[in-house]
């Protein structure tokens, strides 16, 4: 009996010390997330901030933003709206001169949710990264083990960005077309369960987001970014209608401006897309110019 307890106790103690060592080791790394967070937090120079996910992160050529310190691209690939709300709550009050926030609204993002689609490894990775590098928790649950995620993180930092995104720090421009062009289109996503639940959840979060902007005296501009013809051919009109309805519902509570680039003539060529709904470096240059012109930035 004593021996059994001793075995278990020793295992726990040794394991915990290994784990804590790994945590400490991991905590000493630099991260893209922390970098971006520290750039915006309490920065009085920024007047215009891009929020949201890869739709904006990839669509903005960072070199075209560098001449002006007052614009900052705070979008990060894969960000779910929950994180935008949490970040807005924390950082907007600290940014004394923030006047405009530009937020992307995409047809597919509306139907994704950590709450209804749990246990997705990708979601878990983001949960880990936001907790680790920005200290924001989802559901206040303790985050799971870190070391595997750390390895994954490393891989993302060095390799995957090269493949996927035009990262907003400007290190890895992507040129050309993804070999998995078709995979970015989820055809009947608005009809599959739990699309309606996700939609309502998204609406609530977007309303919260608009409310925070309103309280801080910030002009909120929602945009739907350009997509390739292939994408437009394959999505359902009802889904796009849902998107417009979403904006209308938010507008009835808080002011929100809306610009739709989905059908814009300037972005029709397939050669400016990385995949059906993400621009590549050529597209990112075009789009960054266009946005600056449209909103006088």
């Amino acid at each position: 009996m004593n021996k059994s307890f001793r075995l278990i106790l020793w295992t726990c103690v040794l394991f915990l010390s290994l784990w804590m060592f790994a945590e400490w080791f991991e905590g000493h790394r630099d991260s893209y997330y922390t970098h971006k967070y520290s750039q915006v937090y309490g920065n009085p120079a920024i007047t215009t901030l891009f929020m949201g996910s890869s739709y904006l992160e990839n669509c903005m050529n960072p070199h075209l933003l560098q001449d002006n310190d007052s614009i900052y691209d705070f979008a990060i690939s894969g960000r779910w709206i929950y994180w935008d709300v949490q970040l807005a709550e924390r950082i907007f009050p600290t940014m004394s001169n923030l006047k405009t926030v530009i937020f992307p609204i995409g047809y597919e993002a509306v139907y994704s949710s950590y709450h209804y689609q749990p246990c997705n490894p990708e979601n878990e990775l983001y949960m880990y990264k936001y907790s680790k590098y920005m200290n924001i928790y989802y559901d206040r649950l303790p985050q799971r083990f870190t070391c595997r995620s750390a390895l994954y993180m490393n891989q993302l930092r060095h390799k995957k960005w090269k493949d996927i995104t035009y990262d907003s720090l400007g290190y890895y421009p992507i040129v050309g077309k993804s070999p998995k062009w078709e995979m970015s289109v989820k055809r009947n996503i608005h009809r599959s369960w739990p699309a309606q639940e996700c939609y309502r959840e998204y609406l609530n979060y977007l309303t919260d987001f608009a409310q925070i902007c309103h309280q801080n005296g910030i002009r909120l501009i929602a945009i739907t970014f350009p997509c390739a013809d292939y994408y437009l051919e394959n999505i359902q009109p009802e889904g796009v209608q849902d998107l417009y309805a979403l904006i209308d519902s938010v507008q009835s509570h808080y002011p929100i401006e809306y610009h739709n680039y989905l059908y814009d003539d300037e972005f029709r060529a397939d050669s400016i897309y990385y995949n059906a709904n993400h621009l590549n470096s050529i597209g990112a240059t075009l789009f960054a110019r266009r946005v600056r012109k449209d909103f006088n930035l």
Partner: peptide, 10 residues
């Protein structure tokens, strides 16, 4: 126990 604990925890 200590040897096994090392093995298991690792």
């Amino acid at each position: 126990p200590i040897v096994l604990a090392l093995l298991y925890s690792f």
